[in-house]
Each structure stands twice: as structure tokens, then as C-alpha cells.
Simulated assay, not measured.
Amino acid sequence: MRNMSLGNISHPSVKHCADKIDARYPHGRPHHELVPSRYALKVGEIDVMVVSDGVLSLPGEMLGHNVDPALRAAWLEDMFLPPDVLEWALNAVVVRSGGRTILIDAGMGEEYPDARRAGLLAQRLEDAGIDPTSVTDVVLTHMHMDHCGGLLADGVKERLRPDLRVHVAAAEAEFWEAPDFSHVAMPPGYPDALRRTGKRFLKEFHGKLRTFENEYEVAPGVVVQRTGGHTPGHSVVRLASGGDRLTFAGDLVFQVGFEHPDWYNGFEHFPEEAARARIRLLRELAANRESLVATHLSFPSVCHVAIDGDVFRWVPGPWEY
């Protein structure tokens, strides 16, 4: 068998192949996309696309702030992660079912100017060929600024259809009238920014809100369920079609939450309740073997949950070509 040297592959050849695949963009992607930012899959007859809104850089100490810092540092080292900075992915999802196009969470937008690698969702949706006027529904897992801020970005609201429905738990809308930050461990500046964004969103989208108590079917096979914990109205979205199932867990599940589901995250307003809700959901997903997507798991985040002794294990899903 003849050996092949990687050194024989020239950059012009690679570019030529990419141009053959997608002549619109060099390397097959828009010039501002250094890495792929969208991933499509099917859940039965439901079309699903995970879309990246970029990444947030946050202090490492806000992860597991209820445990010994040495334990946290050891976990970060075991996961080949830096000790001081967490790089949090931001994932949103677009779902098509029953003639409706549903955006699940809307990303950061321009709500926190220091987050310069986030707030890209409007551009990413355009790159994916998704016109804002085609979106019939928005589901917000909760109203933190990295989940609703994208709808407040310049020029976005004007492009949304007048009959857009924004689904959010009634408890969530009520919470942001006077939010409680007494149990969080956020970096400085974040509570004020979150409070400001929540109030602004309620004001600007009041007429489009469709609140629910505990569960609501947005479209065939697309059900939003309130879990509470992270925020009082935090919700997950359950997709089911044929024998396929997938849950978008929002901020209920973080990477550390598989091995240490009882560790508190600094953005959880009611961390004890969040830990209980996280464990319930992970047990259910492990039992029924359905797929999981979450906001802050590495893009595209599609994975499964396994039980490993007394804890859970994150099993990345196979990439679907």
C-alpha cells in the first residue's frame, strides 16, 4: 500500500474542494464563520436545527460555587479545561412542525457589549436561510439575556411577523417584574444587565406573550414544560415524533451537571430546586434514551445521558451527515 503524506495536500487543493461544495463561500462557510454554526437533524417528522449564537467567557469560580474550590479545580483539570475561565457555548434551536417554524431561545443580541463573541444569532439564522418573517413562534426557556436578548437587537423586531407568538411560563414573566438575585453567584455587572433586559423584554413584547402555567403544546409534537429552579419559570422543550424524542433543556443541564448534578451554577436563582429538577430530568432521559440538547453544552450539543453508578455520563451523539 502506498503511503500518503499530509504534506502533499496543498491549501489551494483544499480551497478548490470547498468551492466545489459551496461556491458561495470560501471553505464552504460565510467568511465570518470560523467554525460551523448550525447542525440539522430530524426527530421523526420534525425538522430540527441547532444554531450557535457564539460563546461566552465567564469566571471559573461561578461553576459549582457550593463546593470546595479544590474540587472544582480538580474537575476542570480532569476535563482539560482552564482553571479560571469557562467558555460557554450558546445554542438556540429552530424547529419546524405542523406548518409552524419555532425558534427556541433567541440568544444574546447586544444586551451585554463585553460579550463580543456572542450575539450572532440573527446573522447565523440568515446564513442558514431562515428569514425572521418565517418564524411563527418563539419559545423562551427563561428570560436571561442570553436567551431573549436576540429579539431586542437592532433591526430584529421590525422584521418579525405581526402575529408572532412568544411562549413563556407565567411564573417567568411574573418573576422579571421584580427579580430576586439573593441566591446567585454571578460576575459583577450581570445582575444589573439581566434585570434591565428582563424588564425591557416584558415592555417591548408584552402584546406578543402567550403565557402558560406548567405545560403547553406549541405545535404537533412540540411541548414546553416548566421545570423551575434555574429561574421560577424555567422550562424545557420536549420533541416527539414517531419513535424519536429529543429534549432541549435550556439551562437546566451544564457539562458539570452530569458528573456533579448537585453542584450549583452561579446563574441559578434557586439552586437547590435547580439541582432537584436537573436530577429528575437526567434520570428520565437516561431511562427513555432520548436525545438531549442544552444551551451551554459544546455545539452542536446533541447527546445522550447514561447512568454511571451514582452519577450520570454525557454520551455525545454521532454526527449525522
Rank of each mutant, 00 (worst) to 15 (best):
L151C: 03
D137N: 03
P132Q: 10
H144W: 14
A70N: 09
R165K: 14
R159E: 15
E174S: 11
Q123V: 05
A178S: 14
A92Q: 11
C148P: 01
E110L: 01
Q123E: 09
I130E: 10
V166P: 03
L120V: 06
A153T: 03
D163S: 12
A173E: 05
L76H: 10
D154Q: 08
A74Y: 01
E111Y: 06
A173Q: 09
D137Y: 01
H144I: 10
G155F: 03
M108N: 09
V85G: 05
R116N: 03
W88D: 13
L125G: 04
L152H: 01
G149E: 08
V166M: 07
M145H: 13
K199P: 00
D127G: 12
G155E: 02
F175P: 00
P69H: 06
L202S: 02
P187C: 01
N91G: 06
M145P: 15
T197A: 07
D78F: 01
N66Q: 10
V94S: 07
E77C: 04
T141Q: 02
E174M: 06
V94Y: 08
D163A: 12
H65A: 09
W88H: 11
A118Q: 06
F201G: 05
G129N: 11
A122R: 13
M186C: 10
G150H: 02
V85T: 15
W88F: 13
A173N: 04
L160D: 06
P82W: 05
R195P: 01
V184F: 03
A70F: 06
E77D: 13
P113I: 14
L63N: 08
M62V: 12
F181N: 00
H147Y: 04
V156E: 00
V93F: 08
P188V: 09
D127I: 12
E110K: 03
D114V: 12
R100K: 15
V67E: 10
W75S: 04
I104P: 08
D105L: 03
P188R: 04
M79W: 13
M186S: 07
D192I: 09
R195L: 14
D105K: 02
Q123N: 10
G149M: 13
L121W: 12
A128K: 04
L151Q: 00
E77W: 13
V156H: 02
F181R: 00
I104F: 15
M145E: 12
K199L: 14
T136K: 07
L81A: 13
E110P: 00
L194R: 08
H142K: 02
S97W: 11
A122Y: 05
W176Q: 02
A92K: 02
G64N: 06
L194A: 15
F80P: 05
D137T: 00
G119Y: 05
L194Q: 14
D127H: 15
V85P: 06
P82M: 11
L86R: 12
G155D: 01
A89R: 02
A169D: 03
E177R: 14
A153V: 04
G198F: 09
K203C: 08
V95H: 08
R196C: 03
D131E: 14
E77A: 14
G198R: 09
L90V: 15
D131F: 11
L121Y: 10
G107M: 05
R161L: 05
F175V: 10
S134D: 14
D68H: 05
K157I: 00
L140H: 08
S182H: 13
L86H: 12
S182W: 07
F201E: 01
A153C: 03
F175I: 12
P188D: 12
G119L: 06
G99N: 04
V67L: 12
P132S: 09
